[in-house]
């Protein structure tokens, strides 16, 4: 979303004003990946397929490893709503069906945003999310458009 903000600064005054009104209250919210992941951007549908654990591989065939925060964590709620357009209970329902029917796995749940970033940084193929202005060097944001 930060890239999006940058790109649109030259554009309409309305959008700029809108963003200015919105930014002070919120940090940028992004999906993030391990720096080695060979993908720069995802469509919203692709992001949903990865976060709902239906798609298990990156386009080059390597395995995806998803990390999330607990269902009731505010960052999880915001990412689900704003980035994926899903409610947390919908994600839980999909993961539960996969896990308890043997047709898939659940994402790995960690307890804090900081732990999430550490795990994404140290795990090949990792996908997670963050709500922070600065990311560690081996984690990079991935645009959802």
């Amino acid at each position: 979303m930060r890239q999006e903000a940058n790109r649109k600064q030259a554009g309409s005054c309305f959008i700029l004003l809108g963003l200015l009104a919105w930014l002070p209250g919120a940090l940028a919210q992004d999906l993030v990946v391990n720096a080695e992941v060979p993908v720069a951007a995802l469509s919203r549908n692709e992001a949903r397929l990865y976060l709902t654990m239906r798609l298990r591989n990156w386009p080059d065939g390597s395995a995806v490893q998803v990390f999330v925060l607990p269902d009731d964590h505010p960052v999880h709620e915001r990412i689900a709503n704003q980035v994926l357009g899903l409610y947390p209970y919908q994600l839980r329902r999909v993961w539960d069906r996969l896990v308890f029917s043997g047709t898939g796995q659940a994402p790995v749940t960690v307890q804090t945003p900081r732990e999430l970033l550490e795990r994404v940084a140290s795990t090949p193929g990792a996908l997670g999310y963050a709500e922070t202005a600065t990311l560690p060097g081996d984690v990079r944001p991935i645009e959802v458009r």
């Binding site: 298990r56 065939g61 395995a63 308890f100 898939g104 796995q105």
Partner: peptide, 18 residues
């Protein structure tokens, strides 16, 4: 009561049992 185990061999193969 249910207990399940799943093991992802690679991006293509998953073993699971409950």
């Amino acid at each position: 009561i249910g207990l399940n185990l799943s093991y992802r061999l690679d991006a293509r193969m998953l073993l699971a049992a409950q």
